[in-house]
Amino acid sequence: MAKPRHVRGLDPDRRLRFNGRRILVTRLDEVYAYDGDVADPARVRELHDMRIACKRLRYLLEIFDVAFEADLLPYIDEVRALQDVLGDIHDCDVQVPMLEEHLAWLGAREGAAARELVAAATADGVAADDEVAYQSFAGSLADTRHDTERPGMHALIARRRRERDRLHAHFVSEWARLKRERFRARLEEALGGP
């Protein structure tokens, strides 16, 4: 996660507006720093970092709002919407590996249960009737399987991947709209001069 940049020229004994503007302009610049990367859906880290940058900017707009004459609420709403869609993309990016890990966990549990069964069967010695012994072992082995749980996991993974594609396309179109509508210039104008 990218750390926020140090803001120069702050003076705690001056007004909230004087300092708030400096901080907000720096954090706005941090959001735009990801502009060249985020159209690529494979840039998982940059998309996540841009979400964090949006979150910082949004919270700061809410904190410093009181100091500005212009109504910052429409800007807060735009940043929140962008943060939300980036958050949903991040959820998919986190959830797919978690579901894959769950599948691996099911497999590991099956493996451990099968090893215990083999150990128990070996300790019991060879049964008099091979067929009965085999059927009993096969039945116990089947009970340890998690086959019924796998289709749901695969379906969920596929669903999240489709959702991620849709969300990223939506994000790219929203980001293009904000740039077309001169979001940055308008917000800087709303924050006024130094």
Partner: peptide
């Protein structure tokens, strides 16, 4: 949040897919 979302998804999943979700919710 994860449990809430999985619970909400359950009715949308096919019958043979629900056991997996229930197992994950239990975990």
């Amino acid at each position: 949040v994860a449990m809430e979302r999985l619970d909400a998804l359950l009715p949308q999943m096919a019958g043979d897919e629900r056991a997996g979700l229930r197992g994950l919710i239990a975990r």
